[in-house]
Computed example of a mutant assay.
Amino acid sequence: MAAKIFPSILSADFARLAEEVALISDDADWVHVDVMDNHFVPNLTLGLPVVESLVKHSALPLDCHLMIEDPDRWAPAYAEVGAGSVTIHAEAAKAPIRTLRAIRAAGARAGLGINPATPLEPYEELLGEIDMLLLMTVEPGFGGQKFLDLVLPKVRRARQLIKSRDLAVWLQVDGGVSAETIERCAEAGADVFVAGNAVYGADDPAEAVRLLRAKAEAAGA
């Protein structure tokens, strides 16, 4: 498994998003975009119009993480405007199979997100419907939170399930991922790492991406 680093622009300067993305474009794999609606999570960030504009100015594909109510209604539109990947939350989707298939039909990779307290097992049968499984390693809603080690056993189980079914599903972790925690995530089986403060809080974001990749790959991702 090759480690993939997805810097989160939740920690970037929202007034300079295109420039902030350019800072990491030569070193990162994708750009992670946190869409929050102040309903599913207690925070409000950006939405479809900003994503549509950013697609035109990003050299990297966008990974849109929808932390919103009613993703069944909104998710396909993110794929239609050019997002490379769209992740919906298991806790919010009422018709996940239909929505995941609609995302794929619109040309994007389909992702399923699961919060720290949500068990993995009820969603095992959806693994064949997705391209990426996102396991939150903090409670969603805010950047800069402390990494929750209690999610690591879930990461290991997810990797085992993916391997046992011989699926090409990426396993993403998001929340508190840093130079201090990324090795534990990689050892548990994650291969896609979302990092916000660890990248955009650094003096040199590009160097921070390179450091994270090196640590993940050394640990086995």
Rank of each mutant, 00 (worst) to 15 (best):
L171M: 10
A158F: 08
V155Y: 01
S164Y: 04
A168M: 05
L171C: 10
D149T: 09
I162D: 14
D166R: 07
A168I: 06
K163S: 10
L152W: 11
A158N: 05
L171A: 03
P153R: 01
F142A: 11
W170E: 06
L167F: 08
V169Q: 04
L152C: 07
L152Y: 07
W170K: 05
R165H: 03
G141L: 13
V169C: 06
P153S: 14
F142T: 15
R157K: 11
K154F: 00
V151L: 06
R159C: 12
K154W: 14
K154L: 07
G144D: 15
V151E: 11
P153Q: 04
K146P: 04
L161T: 01
K163H: 00
K154H: 07
G143A: 15
R156A: 03
I162W: 08
A158P: 06
S164R: 02
S164M: 06
P153T: 03
S164P: 04
L150A: 13
L171V: 02
K146V: 07
V169R: 11
G143V: 15
G141A: 14
G144A: 13
F142P: 08
R165I: 02
Q160I: 02
P153W: 00
L148M: 10
Q160A: 13
R165L: 05
A158V: 06
Q160D: 03
K146S: 08
L167S: 02
A158S: 14
Q145P: 08
Q160L: 07
A168E: 03
Q145V: 11
L161P: 03
A158H: 11
L152N: 05
S164E: 10
A168Y: 02
D166F: 12
R157C: 02
L148W: 06
V169Y: 01
R156M: 00
R157E: 03
K146H: 03
S164T: 12
D166G: 03
F147A: 14
K154Y: 09
V155A: 01
L161Q: 10
G141N: 12
R159Y: 00
S164C: 02
K163R: 06
R165P: 04
W170D: 05
L171T: 10
G144I: 10
R159H: 12
R157V: 12
V169L: 00
R156F: 07
K146T: 04
F147G: 09
L150I: 12
I162F: 13
